[in-house]
Amino acid sequence: MPHFLSHAFRAMGSPCCIHLYAESPAHGAEAAQKIEAEVLRLEQKYSRYRDDSLTAAINRAALEAGSIEVDSETAALLDYAHTAWLQSDGLFDITSGLLRRAWNFRTGKIPSQKEIDLLLPHIGWGKLTWHNPKLSFTRRGMELDFGGYVKEYGADCAAAVALQQGIQHGLIELGGDIRVIGPHPDGRPWSVGIRHPRIAGQVLAQIDLASGAIASSGDYERCIEHNGQRYGHVLNPHTGWPVQGLISVSVVADHCLLAGSATTIALLRGDTGTDWLDSLVLPWLAMDMHGTVYGTLAHSVSSADA
């Protein structure tokens, strides 16, 4: 009889949880510990808050317009960022974290256009040179931030570790992004609730997942309300201002990384986000600021909201 185990921890600034079925309690505990260690490894490596992280080393090189050689995992992440940048017409941009200097979602202050204009010249993936394995910055004061996709990648890494440990039934949740290791031992899918972006504590939709991943993103995470206008945390790297359009997007894909970047790109695309999601041929669900629900998963929306 498989032993069920749930293990909660904090990583990457979010609550994380592992649910798995193991052969024995000891097997489960060992697997959970290795999965957590993998997530913490990525946090240490890519955190922008730690001086000893690789991100910090890259940004020290960026500060003085230098260059740095990176390992193969980071190289693949940079290649991925490049592809996402191309596919989003420059909207998915890992150099756009600099805009946080103008947009402080904790203080709730709306920056002036002048503040933003000072930052924009230092933003743009196209302004640096990436030749695997060497990353070169040609202008001072740029900054790289892997925060936009490393958590989703972490969920995939965690699932890979789980499979290596012989875990075949379980689920990994990193701050709301979910990667299924495998269905319940009897084959039933996991039932995952998507949070309502406007009504706290309410489930917008419930989705069955036997495999793959689901990621969600929306302006309910961090936003500023000013003069009746909501400013979400998803910033357009071309203008420096929050995008308007969709307030919540969820995408189901084989890998959490794909699901996560699809939600981010859809939000960044604003009003055309739903068209772009349609072109992906992945299951998705979105809500716009008027509360209208779109997407191939719209039938899963709880009847109270439908």
Binding site: F4, S6, S14, C17, H19, K151, A159, L163, Q168, L171, E173, G175, G176, D177, I178, V180, I181, G182, P183, H184, D186, G187, R188, P189, W190, S191, V192, G193, I194, R195, G201, V203, D208, A210, S211, G212, I214, A215, S216, S217, G218, Y220, E221, S250, D254, G260
Partner: peptide
């Protein structure tokens, strides 16, 4: 990116006919 995960519901979820399939 906060999804509400409902572990209790998950474990008791009504039997779905979804087949056992290897993880994608």
């Amino acid at each position: 990116m906060k999804l509400l995960l409902l572990p209790c519901v998950l474990l008791l979820a009504a039997c779905s006919s979804a087949p056992v399939q290897p993880w994608e």
